[in-house]
């Protein structure tokens, strides 16, 4: 991953900031320049709640480079309380026990790193919402 790309996406990755169309109210994550619903070009920042339920998921058993230590792990689409669906890795659980409809919550986690001397990339992941 490029350092500059990660840095540009800090509002989304660190704070789950989406764009809410000032005209029709449609929430887009990540934010867009033009509203896909009404074509308007002005948005306000909308901070997503991070809470939702698991819509669908898959279990990664042969992980790509940098993710090997976490395998097997789940990657899923989570339907947030805000009404939009976002993709994320699911951690802090045995992926075999996951099922669609499970309540999940976003936490700040380490995503990857550029080797032992490069940058560490942080962002949201989802964990089971068990109240801890």
């Amino acid at each position: 991953m490029e350092v500059a790309k990660h840095w540009r996406e800090t509002p989304e990755r660190y704070r789950l900031e989406a764009g809410k169309c000032s005209k029709c109210g449609k929430i887009s994550f990540p934010g867009r320049l033009i509203c896909p619903e009404c074509g308007y070009r002005e948005f306000v920042i909308h901070k997503l709640s991070g809470k939702g339920k698991l819509d669908t998921f898959t279990i990664i058993r042969t992980a790509p480079s940098g993710f090997e230590d976490l395998a097997p792990y789940a990657v899923g689409i989570v339907e947030l309380e805000d009404g939009i669906k976002i993709l994320g890795q699911i951690t802090d659980c045995d992926p075999e026990t996951l099922k669609t409809g499970d309540k999940l919550v976003a936490k700040f986690r380490r995503i990857n790193e550029d080797g032992k001397t490069g940058m560490i990339y942080y962002a949201y992941k989802f964990v089971p919402d068990v109240g801890i």
Binding site: F108, R109, R110
Partner: peptide
């Protein structure tokens, strides 16, 4: 800590 947890992630989640 889980492999994806470190001082920064624990600090952020506690601070939130």
């Amino acid at each position: 800590p889980c492999p994806d947890e470190d001082t920064a992630t624990l600090a952020v989640n506690a601070a939130r």
